[in-house]
Amino acid sequence: MMALNRDFLIRGWLIPAILLIVFLLPIHSSDVARAETLVTGISDNSIRISSNFTGAELVLFGTVERDAQSIARRQGYDIVVIVRGPQQSITVREKERIAGIWANRNSWAFDDAYGFLAILSNRPLADITSESARDEFGIGLTRQSFTASNGNGAFNNEQRLTFSEALLRQMQARQLYSQNEEGVEFLSDALFTARIAVPAYVPVGTFEADIMLFGDGALLAQQTVQLDVHKTGFEQFTYTLATEQPLIYGIVAVILAVLAGWLASVMFKRD
């Protein structure tokens, strides 16, 4: 009975299952058909903001694996890394002189702008792939397509461009947006690393790092790594309380102030 059972298991179930898995594999990993695969890793999948947070540096590394079908690429491999932070609405305002004073006048809202955007590559983006591919994959700070709306409801393409440029400029000044065409370094023909600087002003949320492998201008493989940025410990507690229980937070802030003032008057009591 036992022998029959084992026989049944092996012949009747296990072998077809293995065959099925092997058969399914290429479908799940489309890279196999393209002959190159990317194997990547990141130094840290989560950035924790604690009281001593002044920014962080992520190290991304990876290797290009080739198989027998891989053909030699005339120009070698190129890597483009795009790290995108959580999408949020960002309002851009333009000052005008009104009665001698510089005051905000026109505004545009970019409703799905990234809170963080870093584009890194091993050489100039224009040399890596075609303009249409760069537009398609959002390769380049100026090639993002955020939904923009004018504060007055009027649509003016020229104005939209001016405000988009201002958005990029301001975000770059805060080091939240960056484009570094020497940010990816090839250590050998196949091994590469990229360093991503995360400034202290980074927004919290889920981040995605897209790693794209190009060869002779064509996208050969792509991988996405998720990471998250969150406040931790006291920072997390304070922030959560302030946003989710603002009334309690406000009362606690007042009680703390009263205690601090009372403590000071006791400590410095004059004789």
Partner: peptide, 17 residues
């Protein structure tokens, strides 16, 4: 600060306003 022309006339604010 109010009277002198700022270096960049544009400013950004997070949130839709």
């Amino acid at each position: 600060n109010l009277i002198v022309q700022p270096d960049d006339l544009f400013s950004i604010a997070f949130g839709s306003g």
